[in-house]
Amino acid sequence: MSSPSSYYIPHEAKWPIIGSIALFAFFAGFASLLNGGGWIVMALGAALLVYMMVRWFGEVIAESENGQYSAQVDVSFRMSMMWFIFSEVMFFGAFFGALFYARTFSGPWLSGLGEGGAAATNAVLWSGFDYVWPNNGPEQLGDNYTPMHWFPLPVLNTLILLTSGVTCTIAHHAIKHGDRAKMVRWLLATCALGFFFVIMQAVEYYEAYAHLNLKMTTGIYGSTFFMLTGFHGFHVCMGAIILLIVMIRGTRKHFSATNHFAFEAAAWYWHFVDVVWLGLFIFVYIL
């Protein structure tokens, strides 16, 4: 099927350039905000971006539902989604890399363990600093804090996400058998779990700030902790929204047993978020 007799060629598209303008406003506005300016430009940019996405995706959905896409287009979409997820993996890789580097190199070095100038570093600059993980550095940035324990919230969150992976798979099986109603039901469960996860994470952050004195400014531990869990949480939100949209489309009689790429893309994304969480759970919370 992927060798069609004629190719699909879309007509002109106005959304991309609007998207560029939106991103421009968003970025420029965000930068000004950071420099002490107002937030309006940024908000306008974000709003336009959302509007653009809604309209652009709307068009794509309409075309798909009209059966304008050949099997070849479908394959293109699949590949793109796959490699997009791979690029996201690499993005997380940078932060995991930072975590590993801080734990295996900079921390021990500062406490005098290692070749070269490590001993001198500790003796001359930071005497008294003993490396343990977690730590907030030789100057104890952010003062005393309590590390986040892996129990109970993170364990609960792990269970939530794992369960949501299962519900998502059940939904997938349902649509593969053409049972749209069942798909919608199980997707609802998946989304609910996703949002529950986000709420739990918010609770965890509240705990951290309010009771543990664990903040972004808590040295390298706080930095890696919030950066990794924060970006992950953001991805969970995105994933849940995507699943929600897929669910709503399901209620509008979109998708069939053979044509449900959007569902699969969302599911892949969801599993990716899941796997990243497992990495987080192991390396951020447990080890």
């Binding site: 950071l34 030789p138 400014t217 040295g219």
Partner: peptide, 27 residues
């Protein structure tokens, strides 16, 4: 994406008080 991650850490080090690249905080 790795570059994006690197410059994001620069951004948070400057504006949000993280210590990725600051020895005093263990970075």
């Amino acid at each position: 994406p790795v570059l994006a991650g690197a410059v994001t850490m620069l951004l948070t080090d400057r504006f949000f008080g993280t210590s990725f690249f600051n020895a005093a905080g263990g970075g």
